[in-house]
């Protein structure tokens, strides 16, 4: 198992290289020039050129990439064009809100979606099932920023239960941090819960027709035991797959949500960097997201082996 995990991690390196080439090209194809933005409205062409030279933006593209890549190998992702701070430091500063938001979202999603989907499968074609799946369709079709603003209006503006925006770091206490991410995490979770509940329902429904479920009934086991210990665990592989994919899509959702709720996380960092054409930061953040994705995929594969013995060996 450990060996397998190590091999998979090493195999992720070429992926990261390809991703960085791709991102590098994409950034430089899109219009916009950080030097012009940086120089300000009244700058002379000479000033702009000077800035370009300082940022090494006057070099041929392949040389720029080569320089960046050599640094990246030493885990130096360069520095922000604006603040001059190292990209790695910027990421580390912003990582906590994003992690807290992301993990809370995933936890909420799993707690809502999996029992809901499993129960809907158990009561298939009843009112409960239809209600649950109706909710899933709504959650899936409404964009996260719409849900975000609705939640903001109801819970933060009208009822004043949660802050309208901002983030309280963990250093101010676990509760304060969780309280500050409750609304954004709920907005995000509703979207993913919809997807995961549907997949869970389908997978569990499939399993409920199996002979071994008939065996559990003949054994006189209780309904929750049949549903959660036998059916849900047997249906685990497709569910874990979708949770993994959910994680991946979550990255996009985090970017939007952090803007709506004004949370100083990596999503905000990304948006700011893109609007200012802060090339090293964009490059670094996307590389960071890619690495996170590779790690998630690995975790998903390891989870398969954990829940289904037939995958092992």
């Amino acid at each position: 198992m450990l060996r397998y995990a190590a091999t998979r991690l090493v195999a992720g390196v070429p992926t990261l290289v390809l991703v960085s080439v791709f991102i590098f090209s994409l950034i430089h194809i899109t219009p916009g020039d950080p030097a012009i933005l940086l120089a300000g409205d009244n700058a002379t062409p000479a000033q702009v050129e000077a800035i370009r030279a300082r940022l090494k933006l006057d070099l041929p593209l392949w040389q720029q990439f080569g320089l960046w890549f050599l640094d990246a190998l030493r885990l130096d992702l360069g520095s922000s064009v604006y603040s001059g701070k190292p990209v790695t430091e910027l990421i580390m500063q912003r990582i906590e809100p994003t992690l807290v938001l992301g993990l809370t979202t995933i936890l909420l999603t799993i707690l809502i979606a999996i029992p809901l989907g499993a129960y809907a499968a158990w009561r298939v074609n009843t009112f409960v099932d239809r209600l649950a799946m109706g909710f899933a369709v709504i959650g899936f079709s409404v964009p996260v920023f719409v849900i975000g603003y609705v939640l903001l209006y109801v819970f933060a503006v009208k009822w004043r239960l949660f802050p309208v925006q901002g983030y309280k770091p963990l250093s101010e206490g676990m509760f304060a941090a969780l309280h500050s991410v409750t609304l954004p995490a709920t907005a995000l979770a509703l979207v993913f819960a919809a997807l995961i509940a549907r997949v869970t329902r389908a997978a569990v429904l499939d399993v409920l027709g199996e002979n071994y479920i008939r065996t559990t009934r003949a054994k006189g086991l209780s309904a929750p035991r049949i549903l959660f210990i036998h059916a849900l665990k047997s249906a685990g592989v497709p569910v874990v797959t979708v949770v993994g994919i959910g994680f991946a899509t979550l990255i996009g959702g985090v970017v939007v949500t952090e803007s709506v709720f004004n949370i100083p996380g990596i999503g905000r960092l990304t948006v700011d960097a893109i609007t200012r054409r802060d090339y090293p930061v964009i490059q670094g953040v996307i590389l960071f997201f890619s690495a996170a994705l590779i790690l998630i995929n690995l975790l998903v594969d390891l989870t398969y082996a954990l829940i289904d013995p037939r995958v092992r060996g």
Binding site: E210, N211, Y212, R214, T215, T216, R217, A218, K219, G220, L221, H230, K233, S234, G236, I307, D308, P309, R310
Partner: peptide, 19 residues
Amino acid sequence: RGRRIGMIFQDPMTSLTPV
């Protein structure tokens, strides 16, 4: 079921929970 009446089925290959 399971306590006073035990039951076995036709197809042992699929009658046990795989996980």
